[in-house]
Computed example of a mutant assay.
Amino acid sequence: MIVRAGLAATVAGVLLTGCGGPGAVLEPMSIPGGTETTPSTTPATTSPTAAAPVDYTPLLLAPGDVYVPGDGYSAPPPIRDPDGVHGAEELMTNGDQTRAIGITIVVLPDVATASAELTRAQQTLSTVVPTEPSQPVPVGTGAIAVTGLAHDSSKAVTALVFGEGRSIVRIDFYSAVGQPTPVDFAIGIGKMQALAVRVGLTGSG
């Protein structure tokens, strides 16, 4: 059974990650709540019509974007604004569910806020028990990656977190113990996701 990731709206802005299923588990990801200003309450006769919430799910990569020779990924419909936090998330799994990729995008009010929260997001890579030191990687802004194990040692995890404009993105790659996802592969997926976010946010407002 796959357990979806959740976004808990907390001011502390802590990212926890993981995902559960055969060979893959995605845990909750927490990021700051109250990230968008709510208009002040005014009499119904004078307040403007509220703008429709933005759907950020189109920012996510599609399973077909992930190329692995001899294998393919699929995913259920992505989750819009999980736990009330602006953004989107999804969990892709390969054919025999021995590998999975969990992607969570959180969209903040502006670049300055995203930059401030990225440091907290980087610190939550401690949710992976590293088998080697974390390393900076060339994806988006301030990207770091770490390879290790889930805390229950049931699977290998390669985690990547980075900023892109006013968003924070976390991608987790799950696989069998002893068969971690190469960081180079994670970087390639990360670059595609960063481009999709950059282009998508430019047009989404």
Rank of each mutant, 00 (worst) to 15 (best):
E117K: 13
A12C: 05
S30G: 14
P53K: 03
D184N: 08
V111F: 07
I189A: 11
A44L: 11
G33N: 10
L160P: 04
G165L: 10
A150G: 00
P136H: 09
T42P: 03
E36D: 14
R198D: 15
G165P: 04
F162D: 12
G95F: 13
G34A: 11
Q179A: 14
D55I: 01
P130T: 00
D172W: 07
D65M: 09
E117S: 09
P78V: 11
I103M: 11
T41Q: 15
S74Q: 12
A50G: 08
K155G: 10
A52I: 08
A176F: 07
D96G: 08
T181C: 02
T202I: 11
P182E: 00
G87L: 06
G64H: 09
A5F: 12
A116R: 13
P130L: 00
T202W: 15
D83I: 11
M1W: 05
C19M: 14
M29R: 15
A156C: 02
R99Q: 09
L201T: 03
G140W: 01
G190V: 08
T113K: 10
L201H: 01
L118F: 09
F162P: 10
P22D: 02
A196N: 07
L91N: 02
R198T: 15
N94H: 08
M1H: 06
T46H: 01
A196E: 03
F173C: 03
G205K: 10
G6M: 10
V3H: 06
T57R: 09
G6L: 14
T37L: 09
V66F: 11
T46F: 00
H151Y: 05
D172S: 12
T158L: 03
I144D: 00
V3P: 00
P82L: 02
V128C: 05
P63K: 08
L26A: 14
S167Y: 12
P180S: 02
M1D: 13
A156T: 09
A156N: 01
T181N: 04
F162T: 05
P182Y: 01
I2W: 03
F162N: 10
G165D: 08
G165V: 03
V3Q: 05
A194S: 10
T113C: 10
A75M: 11
M192N: 12
Q193S: 02
L201V: 02
R4S: 09
V197E: 13
G6V: 11
R120S: 14
A143F: 00
T181Y: 05
P43V: 06
A145S: 05
P76I: 15
A9C: 13
G64Y: 04
